[in-house]
C-alpha cells in the first residue's frame, strides 16, 4: 500500500532527499589512474570565495571534498562585497590555487567575468573555476551554454525550474494574483521575474510587479519594501514571491516576512536560507548543503583530471525540498493542504 506522492508535484520535489550525499558515499576509483595526483605532501589548493563563511554551499563543498579522498586544502575567503574582487584578484592569482570556487552570482561574475568579454587583466582566466548557487549562468553570461560552458568555468544552480515553483505555489492554494518583490539591479532577478510572468500567464495567474525603486544615483531602495508590499496587498495580491535575490531575499527577508504577515499575504521563496531565518510561509529549494556537495563533485572531477575542466556541464539538482513554516501558516490561518504537508519538510519557529 502506498499513497502516491507523485501526483503532487511530478516528482520534482521530495522531502529531505540528498542526491549529492549518495554520490559521496561511493568513492571514486577513477582517481587513482589520473595524470594529476595530489598527495599529502603536495595537496591540491582550493580557494573558496564567498560572501559569508557559514553558507550551506561552503559546508557541503568542504564535506564532499573531505569525504572524496582527494588530498586538498580548502581556503575559505569571505568577500562580502563583489565590488572588492578586482583588488583581491592579483593576490589570489599570486597564491597559485589549483581551483577556485565562487558562491552566488555576483561574486562569480566578479571573478570570471562574462564568457564573451574575457579580460585577463580584470578576471581570473587561467585557473579552473567552479561556481555554486548561480541562478542563471547563461542569462548572466557566465557560460555560453549549460551543457557546454566553453571555458574552464562550471558549477551548480540551485533554483527549481519556474514551472515547478509555480506548480508548488498553486498546490497550496489556487492563487489568482501573486506579487514579485525583487531588485531590478540584479540581472538574474530580471530574468527570473520575466520567466515567472510567462509561466504565470500559462497558468492563468496574474503577477504584480513590485520591483524596488531606485534612488537618484540608481541604487535600489530596500527601504521601500514595506510600501511595495502594502501596495501589492491593496492591488489584490495574495502571495509575495521572492526569488534568488541578494538584496531582497538574502538581506531583507525578515522585513518581507514581517510586512507580508502584517498584510496577511502568503510568502514563497525559491532559496533556502530566507525561509530558515525569517517567518516566511514556504519555499521550494535545493538545500544549499546539497548544492555545495554537487559543486564539490565537479571540483574533484576537475582536480583529478577525470573530466576536462571545460567539458563539465552546469547542472541543477533534480530534487527539491518543500519547506513549510508551520508558524506562518497558523498566523495566516492558511493551513497547508494535507498532500503538501505530507511531503514537506516542516520548519518550526525558533
Amino acid at each position: 500500500m502506498s499513497l502516491s506522492r507523485r501526483t503532487v508535484l511530478t516528482g520534482a520535489l521530495t522531502a529531505g532527499t540528498l542526491t549529492a550525499g549518495t554520490l559521496a558515499a561511493g568513492g571514486f576509483p577513477a582517481f587513482a589512474q589520473t595524470a594529476r595526483t595530489f598527495t599529502s605532501a603536495k595537496p591540491a589548493r582550493i580557494v573558496v570565495l564567498t560572501p559569508r563563511k557559514d553558507v550551506g554551499d561552503v559546508l557541503g563543498l568542504r564535506d564532499f571534498i573531505a569525504s572524496s579522498g582527494l588530498s586538498a586544502t580548502v581556503e575559505v575567503r569571505e568577500v562580502p562585497q563583489a565590488s572588492a574582487m578586482p583588488t583581491l584578484l592579483p593576490e589570489i592569482r599570486a597564491s597559485k590555487p589549483d581551483l577556485v570556487v565562487t558562491v552566488f552570482t555576483p561574486l562569480t561574475l566578479a571573478t570570471v567575468g562574462r564568457y564573451d568579454d574575457p579580460d585577463p587583466s580584470r578576471f581570473l582566466t587561467d585557473v579552473p573555476v567552479v561556481f555554486t548557487s548561480v541562478t542563471d549562468p547563461v542569462a548572466s553570461r557566465v557560460v555560453r551554454a549549460l551543457d557546454r560552458p566553453g571555458r574552464a568555468v562550471t558549477g551548480t544552480r540551485h533554483i527549481a525550474p519556474v514551472a515547478v515553483q509555480m506548480k508548488t505555489m498553486l498546490s497550496y492554494r489556487r492563487w489568482k494574483k501573486i506579487a514579485a518583490v525583487y531588485n531590478p539591479a540584479e540581472d538574474n532577478m530580471v530574468v527570473a521575474v520575466r520567466d515567472l510572468k510567462e509561466e504565470a500567464a500559462r497558468q492563468g495567474v496574474e503577477v504584480h510587479d513590485a520591483a524596488l525603486p531606485r534612488d537618484a544615483s540608481g541604487a535600489p531602495q530596500a527601504a521601500a519594501i514595506p510600501d511595495l508590499i502594502a501596495d501589492a496587498a491593496r492591488a489584490g495580491a495574495e502571495l509575495v514571491y521572492i526569488g534568488p535575490d541578494t538584496l531582497v531575499a538574502s538581506n531583507n527577508n525578515a522585513v518581507v516576512a514581517e510586512q507580508a504577515l502584517a498584510h496577511r499575504l502568503a510568502t514563497f521563496c525559491s532559496t533556502e536560507l530566507p525561509i530558515r531565518r525569517a517567518n516566511l510561509l514556504m519555499g521550494l529549494v535545493s538545500p544549499a548543503v546539497n548544492v555545495g556537495r554537487f559543486a564539490g563533485l565537479k571540483a574533484v572531477e576537475i582536480l583529478t583530471g577525470a573530466k576536462p575542466a571545460d567539458g563539465i556541464p552546469v547542472e541543477t539538482l533534480n530534487r527539491f525540498s518543500l519547506l513549510l513554516r508551520i508558524g506562518a501558516a497558523k498566523q495566516l490561518d492558511l493551513y497547508p493542504p494535507m498532500r503538501l504537508l505530507n511531503i514537506a519538510e516542516i520548519v518550526q519557529d525558533a
Binding site: I326, R339, L340, I346
Partner: peptide
C-alpha cells in the same frame, strides 16, 4: 497523516485537503 498534522499544531476540523488525502488512499 492526520495525527501528524494535529501534532504539528493544526486544528483537526480546520485541516485543508483531507478529501484529497482520502481519495489518494
Amino acid at each position: 497523516q492526520i495525527d501528524r498534522a494535529v501534532a504539528l499544531g493544526f486544528e483537526l476540523d480546520k485541516l485543508v485537503g483531507v478529501d484529497e488525502l482520502l481519495s489518494d488512499a
